[in-house]
Write a protein that binds this DNA or RNA. Sequence first.
DNA 1: AAGCTTTACGTTAACGCTAACGTTACTTTT
DNA 2: AAAAGTAACGTTAGCGTTAACGTAAAGCTT
Lengths: 338, 338
Amino acid sequence: MDSRDKTTKIEDVAAAANVSIMSVSRAIRGVEGVSEKKRTEILKIARQMKYVPNSNARSLAVANSNLIGISLPTFAGEVFADILNGMRRTFDSAGYSSVIDTTEYDPEAELKWVRRLLSWQPAGIILTGTDHQQETIELLKASPIPVLEIWDHTEDPIDICVGIDHHQAGQMIGEHAYALGYRAPAFVSTPRGYDTRADARLTGLRDVFLREASTSVLSARPASSNSFSTGFDGTAELLDRATPDLICYLNDHMAFGGMMCCQERGLSVPEDIGIVGFNQLDILSVLPVKLTTVRTLRRLMGIAGARNLLARINGVVVEKSQNLPLEFVIGQTTRQQG
Amino acid sequence: MDSRDKTTKIEDVAAAANVSIMSVSRAIRGVEGVSEKKRTEILKIARQMKYVPNSNARSLAVANSNLIGISLPTFAGEVFADILNGMRRTFDSAGYSSVIDTTEYDPEAELKWVRRLLSWQPAGIILTGTDHQQETIELLKASPIPVLEIWDHTEDPIDICVGIDHHQAGQMIGEHAYALGYRAPAFVSTPRGYDTRADARLTGLRDVFLREASTSVLSARPASSNSFSTGFDGTAELLDRATPDLICYLNDHMAFGGMMCCQERGLSVPEDIGIVGFNQLDILSVLPVKLTTVRTLRRLMGIAGARNLLARINGVVVEKSQNLPLEFVIGQTTRQQG
DNA sequence: AAGCTTTACGTTAACGCTAACGTTACTTTT
DNA sequence: AAAAGTAACGTTAGCGTTAACGTAAAGCTT
């Protein structure tokens, strides 16, 4: 449409300013080697000509880029938005751009994306969780590019890792629940294998009740359209087939959906049934009843992860694996005493 | 760290496979000019060598890329996640990657991002809304790259546009509210100038009540940490200084926060006060009382936008400006009859 | 004022890839 | 069996930028 077809390149600017290409390059990048006078003159002309540097040529020449690739399971929900915000601000102020992708919890999609991304010679790559295709791991280990695994914790990361221990989080919930006297807990989650972090939390919870009370933990794993209705539907399913005294959820939104279900069925919380969420999400701040939940430091995680990755990119040695603390927040949706 | 420093390039693969560079290039890109036998052989060797093509070199050579830049105000909330999902799926299956950025509602940040993005020779650019810095508009109009403006509607887009008319949405709410007999409506939003779409809706609502009843519409614009508490706080502020018979919100999450506030103050909905949300968000599906709201087709918008942009990229002429329909959904938080 | 250092430039050769055009070898046609 | 076509390759010349090196002029030292 607007076809002044040939875009202006550095050469055109050089010609217009009557200097060499290198002087323009130096002026634009702000490196030494041009007098202050020429620099301002060149920059003025470049602006007038609407010159836009070609990052492809630059990255090709210097064999790296200032791109950071970030892979998330999904954009839905606050969790990854929080982590992302923490990371992005850090990267931005360090002059890096982020290329974000979501896998929708599909490791195959993650692999495809990693392959595509690697072709852009990014400065760093961030993956969510520690559960990846074998080929993804090999590809990344073979490349010199720093890799950060976030949200999940492992002692054996691809490169470096900042996260929380979800199995331990499940145990924490289990221990508090047991101490409060609950003996028939249940867990509402998403379909098995979909969210491996959720699976780990459930396992942690199960471990505790198996050990302490030789009790098994029921679970419901509906596949609904969103968190709220997943919580609602899973709760309905559980209550139809059993009588749990406590229901733990994958996150607070699901817990809210579950509370709505209990309310509809005339069950009062916490008298008839206890409810435990996860993540301490925004909605809690306006609920009339304080939800029992687990606080996760998502923004902090993003910032810490980004910092470590940047350090790693700059060749500084950082700790392989950082485990962030969790806090069990006792609200009004569980009993106050054992 | 893992420094087999020299990454393998197409030349190395060619040497290993005993063919010319071009044969490898053709095999990898899947274009004509290599026998099926050689192709599979080359691909096998390339995989073994963990060859990753260099997109920078490719883009430099062909003078374009398969990147689509997407600028959103924020990752928070469902709205942009929905739009994004619609778009990304469409782009993905067409072989494009998306580079996403958030401006946090700052036009200056948008400009900086547009400049950076243009340097990557993207295939297309997507901006949210129609409110941009003058320089942003000039830069984009001067470039040959197709630009899509989404979410908002205008008859005079930079290039093409797919969205809804927020002023009209405000009028729609106003007309229904007036018809239901409300005479003292109020609006809870975010600080002025922050979200221009919200401002447009408020203006639409005001227009109707000014015309029909010569009434002004009160507004509260708190700056809280999240949607839920913004709704809660704004409602508290309004109720402290006036007695509205209806409160309209920027979105359903804020409306929910507002309902919680009303509940805390002993006001019953819809008897004492009416509540209207916006967007028909997920949470509505589990609330015991159906919220009156306006349904927006966000996924569809994403898909339609992406399709149009792709067509535009491929040189197909598409309609400049597409206006998607809105639907006023009458729930149980407003009176049933005027 | 000769020698040395510093600053301000310019020249050249990549960076890894692909479009465009050449060159083979292999079919088909007559 | 010669001519003519066609599919399968290979060669060359960029794409726009920067690192590395080269050169000339200016400043400093004694």
